[in-house]
Design a protein around this nucleic acid. Sequence first.
DNA 1: GTGACCATAGTACAGGTGTACTATGGAGGA
DNA 2: TCCTCCATAGTACACCTGTACTATGGTCAC
Lengths: 214, 214
Amino acid sequence: MENQSEQSPIRILIVDDHPIVRAGLATLLRREPDLRLEGGVNSAEEALAFLAGHAVDVVLLDLRMPKTTGIEVLPMIVANPGAPRVLILSSFDYEEEIYRAAMAGARGYLMKSAPRREILQAVRNVAQGGLHFPEGIANRILERKGRPGLSPREQDILIMISKGLTNKEIGHALLISQFTVRNHVNHILEKLQASDRTEAVSIAIQQGVIAIHS
Amino acid sequence: MENQSEQSPIRILIVDDHPIVRAGLATLLRREPDLRLEGGVNSAEEALAFLAGHAVDVVLLDLRMPKTTGIEVLPMIVANPGAPRVLILSSFDYEEEIYRAAMAGARGYLMKSAPRREILQAVRNVAQGGLHFPEGIANRILERKGRPGLSPREQDILIMISKGLTNKEIGHALLISQFTVRNHVNHILEKLQASDRTEAVSIAIQQGVIAIHS
DNA sequence: GTGACCATAGTACAGGTGTACTATGGAGGA
DNA sequence: TCCTCCATAGTACACCTGTACTATGGTCAC
């Protein structure tokens, strides 16, 4: 595990549902003698199947994919000892997403808009056991660590708020009192530092706390 | 303008701030004998500069870019006669974005997750003067055509709503009465078919009517 | 110039929201 | 055990919101 470039190459799997991105990464990685692209798949399911049959050092994982998302397979990939290191590739820097990825065992986080040089550096860095989280993001994660996250109940309620339901309607739907709902709402406002339910939804979508429903 | 593949190749410019995506597209396009990649730039400004000095048939344009966005340069690219055809490349299918791109003169709209085959087909289609909007999207645009869009004033107010301001605060900031603000809000709710201001923000972010502020 | 839309301003009222409290019971960590 | 967090439930009150109206003046297209 010292100088990989003169020993065995770093074996890489790309997991991304965008053919263009897979092709771009493949082109980039193939130029490097110390890196070997073992495969590219377009879903979380295929990634698990591939990993069952191939030895891989680093998985480049897209977070936003149809069906099973990157954040969902991440724990399954890194679970057993000797598992590949996972480097997240994302289009966004939604804090919540980065935070969850870090907590779920990702070894690094890269924006797809990163320059080629940084991508190669991150792959090598992660392969050698390092962590690669971009400048500033680490700080933001630490900031967030102090603040508590939303509880499951609070998340449920926030999603219903984003759909325009009133406290009374939410209480009815969840079979709890509207007063309880109001308490949860107040906690949500505190935690997100929002001044009202509308700003809370805005912040939550922005931070990736709740998904943008289509 | 008949059979391009046996005459001059289709000249292409890629405008995208993601190096990986540019590399992937370049790899894809270079394999095709009837397509010629003239260049790849990473911002709207560079695109205009490039187009001033090079003849190009098709521009592959990313909508989401830092500084000037794709939607902003689009009119500048297609303005003069003999201008290249523009094919939008987006990561999303936000209706509002597609609609605005179509209205601003784009000849096609592609998701980055589209298969390679479809991308090549779209490029050739657009180069020959055709339109390439994916299934379903055309219908959704037509549906939307019936509905009026938000007026500039309404957009201003919606953005302030998303930041948690009350009607009174918005009125004060915009130097108008809170009653006027309330009227605008009601029009926003009608137009977006939202049940309250919170759902309006949720819908607006989802549709790309207002940006996700960072 | 007539109609359509936009931006402005107002009134009246029912009902929802946010704040500030108190309170209980369960789960889990130190 | 004690403390914290979570989920639950309630009261009281000031204020905000959404609805339903009316109304005026400007712009722009037909």
